[in-house]
Design a protein around this nucleic acid. Structure first.
Lengths: 192, 192
DNA sequence: CAAAAAAGAATGAACATTCATTTTTATTTG
DNA sequence: CAAATAAAAATGAATGTTCATTCTTTTTTG
């Protein structure tokens, strides 16, 4: 009896193709046949790895989201001051947004449109917990404004997504100075 | 000879239906037949008002964008101080985002995905000129940080879109207090 | 009553998914 | 160790559906 050992490379190639094609055309304008072609695989093969198109995109979302949070919190250390901790996380997020543009663009599209189904989306949100905890502490210490996490997120984190899109879509180039300026704006908007 | 007088009501109904359906399912998952049904019109009739599906959505975008900027700058008066002017514009944007949620959600979707074609998108951007002029003046007067308009926009305006989506998607409700807090964050992030 | 507007049915293309085979891989057996 | 074989993996073609758009006919309008 042969082992059930489907090539992980093929799965990765499919996920990569999905990201690229969905980024450029959107979920519904991306046919399975194109994904298959880009991954050098027959359309039928996709169904050995994923239940259907929705499942493919859900799994892609969760995989990218995991890469994102793994990267973002890798260097984070709970024992620092709130400001230092925030700066650490923020800069990692910025780095991810700039260097892994394909991934962030995909995540952003998932967060802003109805491609992803609700369970997968909920699953994805929980990943930011350490940042929420840090804010909690900051509020207690009187360093962070005592306002809703949604507002804190909207002002200090979400703008990075916008800048990333601007970079992709318009003739705007984010350089080191911009990142520093953006960080100061982020901190100014949430600090007490 | 009968006048060429296509009913404006029908066109409006089509645009309204497009917004609602695209908001809930996205462009490519919205069939013309559904748009027709919701507007109480035959599918063939759509083609009397619009060239094709892409044209329908482009025109919808421009129409909504115009409603947006008309509303936003209606009360604006160039002769005020920079801070007052900014507050005036910002609050109108907030009001639009909260009260005309359907419109803002649609605009946001257009800005973040590849539904709209490039010429229509460019056309839409120009509409924010008065705000850009105000920032220019603010920078000269030393009231606003001397940084890229993209960053100013990312921190002071774009967060409202995020809050609007959060309101639609999660269990978050924007009240008057939130709006005040958000305005302070916006101003803190761009003021010198 | 003629021209415009609208309608429903028809058309053809595109697509997600499944089906029938072939190819690859791993294991067994002489 | 190699030939035989059985299961898994992969494939290309087929299927049935959905959809944008067009065509032909009917209805409305001035």
């Amino acid at each position: 009896m042969a082992k059930l050992q489907k090539s992980i490379d093929k799965r990765n190639a499919l996920i990569k193709a999905t990201i690229e094609l969905v980024n450029n055309s959107g979920f519904h304008a991306t046919p399975m046949s194109k994904i298959a072609k880009m991954a050098n695989v027959s359309p039928a093969t996709i169904y050995l790895y994923f239940e259907n198109k929705q499942d493919l995109v859900n799994q892609t979302y969760l995989e990218v989201k995991t890469k994102y949070t793994d990267f973002v919190f890798k260097t984070y250390d709970e024992s620092t001051s709130v400001k230092t901790g925030f700066e650490l996380i923020w800069k990692r997020i910025a780095e991810f947004n700039i260097n892994e543009c394909e991934y962030s663009f995909f995540l952003n599209q998932c967060n802003n449109t109805p491609i992803i189904d609700e369970p997968s989306r909920k699953e994805g949100i929980r990943h930011l917990q350490p940042l929420l905890d840090l804010w909690e502490r900051g509020k207690k210490e009187g360093v962070i404004k005592p306002i809703s996490d949604y507002i804190l997120y909207a002002y200090s984190i979400n703008p990075l997504s916008y800048l990333m899109i601007a970079q992709k879509q318009y003739e705007f180039q984010l350089n080191k100075t911009h990142v520093e300026e953006a960080f100061l704006s982020a901190w100014d908007s949430i600090k007490r």
